[in-house]
Design a protein around this nucleic acid. Sequence first.
DNA 1: CCGCATCCTCGACGATACTG
DNA 2: CAGTATCGTCGAGGATGCGG
Lengths: 134, 134
Amino acid sequence: MSKTIHGRPYREGLRGPVLTPCAPHSVLARMGDKWTILVMSILAISPETSLRFSAIKNGIPRISQRMLTLTLRNLERDGLVKRHYYPEVPPRVEYVLTPVGKTMLPALEGFTSWIRENWQAIERSREQFDAAET
Amino acid sequence: MSKTIHGRPYREGLRGPVLTPCAPHSVLARMGDKWTILVMSILAISPETSLRFSAIKNGIPRISQRMLTLTLRNLERDGLVKRHYYPEVPPRVEYVLTPVGKTMLPALEGFTSWIRENWQAIERSREQFDAAET
DNA sequence: CCGCATCCTCGACGATACTG
DNA sequence: CAGTATCGTCGAGGATGCGG
């Protein structure tokens, strides 16, 4: 059994630890992209209620129709969000978190709450760093 | 006092909740980029020990010198990593997590452990989804 | 109402070569 | 050894318009 850090396997090489390849990055990258967290947050407000496409769009200032569609597709593909299509006129489409999507919320919240408590320090550090460049 | 979800403020609009702008995305985006988590993971293995540039590079297969430099610069700018330069010949440069950087580890670990437990389900969902497209 | 197609811009990332 | 400079590629993301 090899050692792990953050669930990431690694071995002790001659010149220190070497990380072995890992898949989970794809999930982190997804959550880190421009709109995904915002969509998750909107759906997390009342996790049992499904929201219409337009309600989500209205909830996220400045998101384009195209990017919302793509973001929702990706979440659906990952099995975190379920899409319900109602073939009415005009059509109605609603989205909800799946069970898996809901289990992600506490873990995500743990991380975002750390960010909430620390991002001001981070912002200050960035300003200092940038100011130090002549 | 307005309501929040994941530390994100929102208001109840006429057609549902509306997220108000939020800064923390920049932190999530940072961690979600291609190499940052890997660098954090390497430094997290023994948080009290500083590592040489080359040790980090050896620990992350396929990272280029350029991308490691950029990634470390960004982390230093955010105040999560501290850089120590020793003007010897040949030069030696070491990196350690800052106190702030260390406090991030448990929160990050919470999220990555959720990913570890669920990414196989996510992978399966992706394969199914892709297979469903004719 | 919702989604797709098209076109465009820009920055992340990689490869390579050079310097103190 | 560590970092910088330069150049090239590629895909994320935005604007707009059409269609069921």
